[in-house]
């Protein structure tokens, strides 16, 4: 097969659209990192779990797709709070590996529960109705309707999060806690409540990302968890640990990059190059695209 420049650009377009899911996950990681300077490794797992629950509940109650897209994020948020409670809330931060390790434990706990409950087989995820059929042609390039939907929903969600962080009382409290924990406590802010809210918000974003990913792929499977975890983390690092703007841009670019290598190297080798990209950044731009200079502490 000859790869034309049209193919290349088309695949990058598809990838960038799908990359909005990585951007969402990356923003979730960043929110939690920003709040506690910690990684929540269970984050993508709880996102997929949220989507599973949304799908399951609406299937049992035979509700329509719209409800799935409402329930998925909601349950994702609730699982987020749960993860906060069992992995972050009570583990003293001087044991700096404690929460990290516990969240890795939670990652496999969630993953295995899903595998166990579904016997490891993927479930069909409903298509996005009219969006799935739509296809827009702009010149030589096509835009898949469902991926456009994914992009728009993601951008809306991320915009609301940023507005929340900078325009609401919660956002003020969250930023206060992350910058000056003790001063915030003196001002009467309860840091645990604020952190739990952050985990909830991140979980909502994650549940949304899980639903969008499942809708775009057409099935939902625990096999989505690990790639989503790693790619979300890579988006976080490449964007610059702690930068929301960075995570969004890096997530989109990562999607494009991934799709390009899918075209050029095939599905079996694609992820090798995506993961190598991380090492390129670690060597040449360790603070990512938008990271403030990270202390070498």
């Amino acid at each position: 097969m000859v790869i034309t420049s049209v193919d290349v650009i088309q695949s990058i377009i598809d990838g960038i659209l799908y990359g909005s899911i990585y951007a969402l996950i990356g923003v979730g990681f960043t929110l939690i990192f920003g709040a506690m300077q910690k990684l929540n490794m269970a984050y993508a797992a709880s996102s997929i779990a949220g989507a599973y629950c949304g799908l399951g509940i609406s299937a049992v109650l035979s509700l329509n797709l719209l409800v799935t897209f409402f329930l998925g994020p909601l349950v994702g948020g609730l699982i987020g709070i749960l993860v906060y409670l069992v992995c972050f809330r009570f583990i003293p931060s001087r044991e700096h590996l404690g929460s990290l390790m516990a969240s890795i434990g939670a990652l496999f706990l969630i993953d295995e529960i899903i595998v166990h409950e579904t016997d490891g087989s993927p479930l069909n995820f409903p298509e996005l109705g009219i969006f799935s059929e739509a296809y827009f042609l702009v010149g030589e390039f096509g835009f898949r309707g469902d991926l456009i939907f994914v992009l728009i929903v993601s951008l809306l969600a991320m915009t609301s999060i940023i507005l929340m962080l900078y325009r609401t009382k919660y956002g003020l409290a969250a930023r206060a806690v992350s910058q000056q924990m003790n001063a915030a406590i003196l001002c009467g802010i309860n840091p645990h409540k604020v952190n739990a809210s952050t985990f909830f918000l991140a979980g909502v974003l994650g549940g949304l990302a899980g639903c969008l990913a499942a809708a775009a792929v057409g099935v939902i499977s625990p096999l989505l968890i690990l790639p989503l975890t790693i790619k979300g983390l890579i988006a976080t690092v490449i964007g610059g640990l702690g930068s929301i703007k960075g995570a969004i841009i890096a997530g989109l670019l990562l999607g494009g990059f991934e799709s390009l290598f899918l075209l050029v190297r095939g599905v079996n080798e694609r992820d090798i190059y995506v993961f190598l990209l991380l090492f390129l950044f670690l060597v040449f731009k360790p603070n990512g695209m938008f990271g403030s200079i990270i202390d070498r502490d």
Binding site: F33, L39, H96, I234, L278, F279, I294, R296, D297
Partner: peptide, 9 residues
């Protein structure tokens, strides 16, 4: 770099 980076890398 930061210890967390090692986990990701």
């Amino acid at each position: 770099i930061k210890g967390l980076m090692l986990v990701i890398a």
